[in-house]
Computed example of a mutant assay.
Amino acid sequence: MNIQTALLPPHAEMVRAMLERDTAYEGVFFTAVKTTGIFCRPSCTARKPKPENVEFFAHADDCLSAGYRACLRCKPLDAAAIAPDWVQR
């Protein structure tokens, strides 16, 4: 397990947050969809992918490095994607 993976919440928690569009996880992780090549914020309003087609990343830069492109709907590269105060501490 690398340091970036260690910073993420448990996998099941991230899947739940993604499926429920939980805004409390904004900036905590990003959801990357293998079948489309797009990455999103957890709260994105786009149709939700099957959990087996998803990868989770701690930072948007990690998604870009892995070859994913930013979602045009939720715009994960915008400044609003900064981690909440409770994560930054």
Rank of each mutant, 00 (worst) to 15 (best):
I82S: 12
A60Q: 11
C63A: 15
S65P: 00
A66F: 11
Y68V: 03
A66D: 12
Y68K: 03
L77F: 05
F56D: 09
A83Y: 06
R73W: 04
R69T: 15
S65Q: 14
E55H: 14
G67W: 02
F56C: 11
K75M: 06
L77I: 12
I82A: 14
D62E: 15
C74R: 02
D61G: 13
Y68E: 02
G67E: 06
A80V: 14
F56Y: 15
L72H: 09
C63S: 08
D78M: 03
D62N: 14
A81W: 01
P76E: 01
D62V: 02
K75G: 01
A60W: 10
V54Y: 03
G67A: 08
Y68C: 02
H59W: 14
C71F: 01
L77D: 01
D61L: 15
C74G: 08
L72A: 10
L72P: 00
S65R: 15
V54K: 02
A79H: 02
L64T: 14
D61Y: 11
A58R: 13
D78N: 09
S65L: 13
L72S: 10
C63E: 04
A58H: 11
P76K: 06
K75T: 07
D78Y: 00
C63F: 07
D78S: 10
S65W: 07
K75A: 09
A80Q: 08
R73M: 07
D62W: 10
R69K: 14
E55Q: 13
L77V: 09
L64K: 14
A83Q: 07
A60I: 04
L72C: 03
P76M: 04
L72I: 08
D61K: 11
F57V: 10
G67F: 02
I82Q: 10
A83K: 09
Y68N: 03
A81D: 01
A83F: 05
R69C: 05
H59E: 15
I82M: 05
A81K: 00
D61I: 13
E55P: 00
A66W: 11
C71I: 03
P76F: 08
P76H: 04
F56I: 08
R69V: 15
A60R: 09
